[in-house]
Design a protein around this nucleic acid. Structure first.
Lengths: 219, 219
DNA sequence: ACAGAAACATACTGATCGGTATGTTGTCAA
DNA sequence: TTGACAACATACCGATCAGTATGTTTCTGT
């Protein structure tokens, strides 16, 4: 065991690098954050980064991957459940909304990356592995899309265009990324309250009648 | 008049620079886009940029200001109208949603900038004039906030937390920025249809009953 | 005890970029 | 016609940064 230093973090070094990178990419953006910034954020130097990652875009890719893994892990339980569409959607949406609040660093970095790829096909630097990530993103969206379609067929959701509804709802659940700033004094309850409110609005946006929403909630 | 070249654009030169900057900042982000990129996008060189703008952050500031001016101009008519809260909100929301689609370049550049300032107070480079812009942004939000409060008092909107509802609704209306890609073959009707759908979902999210929404729409 | 490899730090390089200094060309007024 | 200024282009500078090459230290297996 490491005898002479355990004061800061007991995470394995690669994850420390990942955390620092996520933090810096979130704060200054991919292009704006230098690897020296990332290193300084860990109290180390570039040597440490290049010992674990081959390049800057490699590091970014790892951050994206980690963020996506967190996303899948969050909604997986709800998705795998045998609940009817409405409750299944609620479970997935609540988990996702909470995940967005709890993992802001990684999620913001991921969204920056996603945003770039959407606005401009290639050329921004973070190369071809981006395609792999875009495919993952589609898989993630399709999990929600599937539930939306099932719910529409069952008559619970009154949706016009599936893709518009899907994007709108996901954007709503993600919206905390753009305005919610986590404060020091904050319980899990606070975050759950915000998430629950977002889910309620999302459900209403999907055309679920308010009485059904509150009725189901108080079970 | 310019005799020997009128083939490309008849906009005044400063606006050409602004357009090119907005396009590049949107594609690669503020930090990722170089001034040579912007110049190349115009078929010119840096000389032209620095002839009209003092610095890169100055240019960014001008882009932001232009984008904000567009935003205010879009919702002003609805806001100044004497309509009741629901219709006033609908008018403002529809105009805003359409504006987001029509002016993607400037709006995306503006959102990048906003996003940075939120995630990290200062230090990202685009200096203190940012504060002025943040104040403008608040003014803009407050115009919607006012209508939301009036609507809640009137009993049309069933909202729990005003700020959460406000941010969620605005995020919904802005959501096209993150997934809508304008194609060549596209009429004003297409865009209006998307905007109308977003507004409907926003209204439902605010707790407006569906029959009221469709009833009001078919006036 | 020791070789080697893992886990970094340090020092350097080439390219890029914001900004500036200076040149060049058209325009217009006197 | 000419001089002055606007409207740029060109050339260059210093700083920054991704990436590399080369140490230096600590661990680990034998």
């Amino acid at each position: 065991m490491n005898l002479h230093q355990a004061h800061k973090s007991d995470k394995p070094p690669p994850e420390q690098v990942l955390d620092a990178a996520a933090a810096c990419f979130m704060e200054k953006g991919y292009a704006g954050a230098s690897l020296d910034d990332v290193a300084r954020h860990m109290g180390a130097t570039k040597g440490r980064i290049y010992h674990y990652f081959a390049s800057k875009s490699d590091l970014m890719h790892a951050v994206r991957k980690h963020a996506m893994d967190l996303n899948f892990a969050a909604i997986r339980p709800g998705y795998d459940s045998a609940l009817p569409p409405l409750e299944k959607f609620r479970a997935m949406a609540e988990a996702h909304a909470l995940n967005m609040i709890a993992e802001q660093r990684y999620q913001k970095a991921l969204f920056d990356s996603l945003h770039f790829h959407i606005t401009r096909g290639t050329s921004t630097g973070h190369d071809a592995r981006m395609e792999e990530f875009i495919a993952d993103r589609r898989l993630f969206e399709d999990m929600f899309r599937e539930v939306l379609q099932a719910g529409r067929k069952a008559g619970v959701f009154r949706i016009k265009t599936i893709s518009v509804a899907l994007h709108t709802v996901l954007t709503t659940l993600n919206s905390t990324l753009y305005w919610y700033t986590p404060r020091a004094e904050e319980t899990e309850q606070d975050r759950q309250a915000v998430a629950a409110e977002l889910v309620d609005m999302a459900l209403r946006a999907l055309g679920v009648s308010p009485d059904v929403i509150t009725k189901e909630k108080s079970k």
